[in-house]
Amino acid sequence: MQPNDLDRIARQIRLRDLQAVYEAGAGHIGGEMSAIDILTALYFQVLRIWPDQPKHPERDRFVLSKGHVALAFYVTLAKRGFFPEEEISTFLKPHSRLNGHPNCNKVPGVETNTGPLGHGLPVAVGMAKAAKLTGAGYHTYVLTGDGEMQEGSNWEAIASAAQFGLDNLTLIIDHNRFQQGAALSDTNNLAPFASKLAAFGWDVTEIDGNAMAEIVPALQHRAARPHCIVAHTNKGQGISFMQDRVEWHHKVPNAEQYKIAVSELSEVL
């Protein structure tokens, strides 16, 4: 698949995500828009997966540690064939399996339950370590937010991944520079991430996390050490009035804003 094709799929996912947020009246749209290019590259190009066999032992593992962008994950999984796309319309409705945070016992393709931050990376370390112990050939990917890196459990996991020599683990930090309440730099500024991860013994790549031509090769990159991709992204990517605006962490567009956003995302389809 060419970067242009992936871009087209990412736009479709953005549009469906926007529509579902608007209809449900809730969601975390800013961080969803920043992460959708990465999710698209993973699910439509990079991951070795069998949507009809979501528990296939040799599947590559993906952990969405920033579980609050579950909707973008659901839209991606549905589009890839893990469950019917029509089910997206049940997002957040009573008894829907599409909860505000992903549930691995209900939604095919979800590996572990996330939501509280700082959980995905330790679990991903365990997955990668298991492959080392069993000789399985799968690769483990985990996507965290940049604000999420403030959780200390991540740094426990980063240290252990290096100690265990997990060259089958890729951490992607969605570095959109904003957390729920303010900019990362005004809160607890862990940036720059690259030097910190390198100091822990990781191989580090910095990319434009909204550019397919950079995302795909970075995800496919292998090294002798665990690999961290610092993905420089934009919160609200693709929708002009949301971009880099902290309030769009979980704001819901009104009718007029929705119309503008749909039109912007449709232009390039």
Binding site: P57, R61, E111, T112, G118, H119, L121, P122, V123, A124, V125, G126, M127, A128, K129, A130, A131, L133, T134, A136, T140, G152, S153, E156, A157, A159, S160
Partner: peptide, 16 residues
């Protein structure tokens, strides 16, 4: 690192 220990345990189980 107990938080990591429990998360790693969950990941090891996921890996079979």
């Amino acid at each position: 690192a107990e938080q990591n220990m429990v998360g790693v345990g969950a990941g090891l189980a996921n890996g079979g």
